[in-house]
Amino acid sequence: MNIFRLLGDLSHLLAIIILLLKIWKTRSCAGISGKSQILFAIVYTTRYLDLLTTYISAYNTVMKLVFIVASYATVYLMYVKFKATYDHNHDTFRIEFLLVPALILALLINHEFTVLEVLWTFSIYLESVAILPQLFLVSKTGEAESITSHYLFALGSYRALYLLNWVYRYFVEDHYELIAIVAGVVQTILYCDFFYLYITKVLKGKKLQLPA
């Protein structure tokens, strides 16, 4: 464990908590893409199957359980409890266009051709594009609530911090995982324009408005 990965995990946990609080407190999931939340639930389910097979540490196990439970709780809140506030008119990204390529790529490019490893690889590829429905929704509505942009900033920062973690592990532990690194770079790049808008607007107290 290193400080970059710890900060990354905490940023990830913060994002998930911000989102749950936003939906629970405002009793509304307006401005949130349910499709992205479904993709995240799939990402954690397919990535953390090793909870059943290998024990790495209490921290690792607890965080995986938290991420799985929180992602399903979010999907439940959006599609069941606060379903009336779900913006299905704007949340129209076709997630099959993300799921199928990620699965095909995972079958073609992986570390070893076993069920667990292919599913882990699938979850890595899927996570890198899982935020696209959310960014698509924000671009369609042209704006995002401040709390939603804080959620996105924390979520984007988590994988950006993981990039630093991978640099650290390469130089200090002589360890690297090319599949995770390439997908992590793609994932972070997708946030770039949001990061720019967040830093230039939201941090100055303005609302996140995308140029129409």
Binding site: I56, N60, E112, W120, H175, Y176, A180
Partner: peptide, 10 residues
């Protein structure tokens, strides 16, 4: 060393 199938990251 390329890490194989024991993924220790979240």
């Amino acid at each position: 060393t390329q890490n194989q199938s024991s993924h220790d990251e979240l």
